[in-house]
Design a protein around this nucleic acid. Structure first.
Lengths: 232, 232
DNA sequence: CGGTATCTTTAGTTTAACCTAAATCGCGAA
DNA sequence: TTCGCGATTTAGGTTAAACTAAAGATACCG
């Protein structure tokens, strides 16, 4: 705790984005494929391979040719710092500057690379060292610890069991607005009243009344049980 | 007022910095020389010439080979936007996040390129549409109007005449801290009690007592008369 | 009024981060 | 077991923004 972090080199925005994207994709798959990563970064596969090789040389990722890559501990440290910056900024924009939660992602996408460690810490302090951002995503600590909650997608939630919306896995403003219209905002209580077969729609009861929703969309909505939801 | 600004292209950080630097140097000299600009940007003269030619092609600067350059109206519009962002961010860091005024410049130097127009306006609103930043530098309006005050350097201020410190023309943290120790902070009242000949030191009376200061340093300190200083 | 010092520009190189086209790998199906 | 196709990598090219070295312009001084 008391020993200083190694004096930090600075990395290009391209590198920071690359490491962050691997980190986020690793949440879903052990190894991250070149094509998946290329798509997430909106660059071509050859550019992705090239960057992967470069960062493998720098020991920030481990890359097994033709079978994907993973972050090393050093790479993850950097990725977590960027993710922390991103999520702190999102929350700050909402809390301090009156942004609505569906419009903060894009702004944070640029600012996450521009703020100093010092500013990140000032923002964290201002916000009272928060653990979750406006989408319910966990904010890593400055030391790189992440408190991941055990949550269940609405699409798999049991029938007739009240749950609390705790995290939304989609940052697109139109999707977030759509979910909001359906009463699916962070902290809202929901219950599934019917589940149609064959990938059919879910019928929900929210504060706003009865709602019908596509189960593919419901996968983005993560729920906690009513009493667990306090832990945030 | 009600007609939309032309959809704004985006410029690289290098271009924004280049235009901003010309703008700031133009405050002192009609035409900006290649070498002056090169030094301000910490790049070499050939790099400066190259960029000048490129921006001349884009009609953002007018460049007369071998005799310096100026901003065009289009170039100035962009420069003012960056200057506005920079100064709004400086003030915001001080007002909202408890930065001290001598540590905001460097942070703003990076953030000025990263914030959206929307965020700049939110910050301005939060601050109550301010006209001056923590160094007393004027903040251009979103429309590009700058309210420049008629101020006199402390080095040329008359003897035995009270004045109010209104702007400091140096952003270096150590210089700002030095001036602050001498009681020369924005809003402070000063009077020159003696002026030595041959570029000798000035003797001042400030709230903190008698002070002695080099006239070359005193050139950075701009004063207004006591009653004029209200206009800020 | 010419020579020289200083400043500026031109010419050519480098690096990061992208690209397209072509070659190669790996894996499932015949 | 091999064929073929999709995914990946290699090869080679482009652009922005920097650089150094060399050539050219300006201006000042004697």
């Amino acid at each position: 705790m008391s020993d200083r972090p190694a004096p930090r080199e600075t990395y290009s925005e391209a590198i920071e984005d690359f490491l962050k994207a691997i980190y986020l994709l690793q949440q879903e798959h052990e190894r991250v494929q070149t094509s998946t990563l290329a798509e997430a970064l909106a660059i071509t596969a050859p550019s992705t391979t090239e960057m992967a090789k470069k960062l493998a040389r720098a020991k920030l990722v481990s890359h097994e040719p033709y079978r994907g890559m993973r972050l090393t501990a050093a790479g993850e440290r950097i990725a977590l710092e960027i993710v922390r910056n991103h999520r702190l900024i999102e929350l700050f924009l909402v809390e301090a500057l009156g942004y609505s939660w569906d419009e903060v992602h894009e702004e944070a996408e640029r600012l996450e690379h521009a703020i100093s460690d010092r500013l990140a810490e000032r923002i964290a302090e201002y916000l009272g060292d928060p653990h979750f951002d406006p989408h319910g995503d966990p904010i890593p600590t400055a030391e790189g610890d992440v408190r991941e909650l055990e949550l269940t997608p609405l699409s798999e939630w049991p029938l007739h069991t009240p749950g609390v919306v705790t995290r939304l896995l989609n940052q697109a403003p139109d999707m977030l607005r759509y979910l909001s219209e359906k009463g699916l905002t962070i902290g809202a209580e929901v219950e599934i009243v019917a589940r149609d077969p064959f990938e059919g729609p879910l019928t929900l009861r929210t504060a706003g009344g009865k709602q019908v929703i596509n189960p593919n969309v419901a996968r983005y909505v993560l729920l906690a049980e009513k009493d667990e939801a306090q832990q945030r």
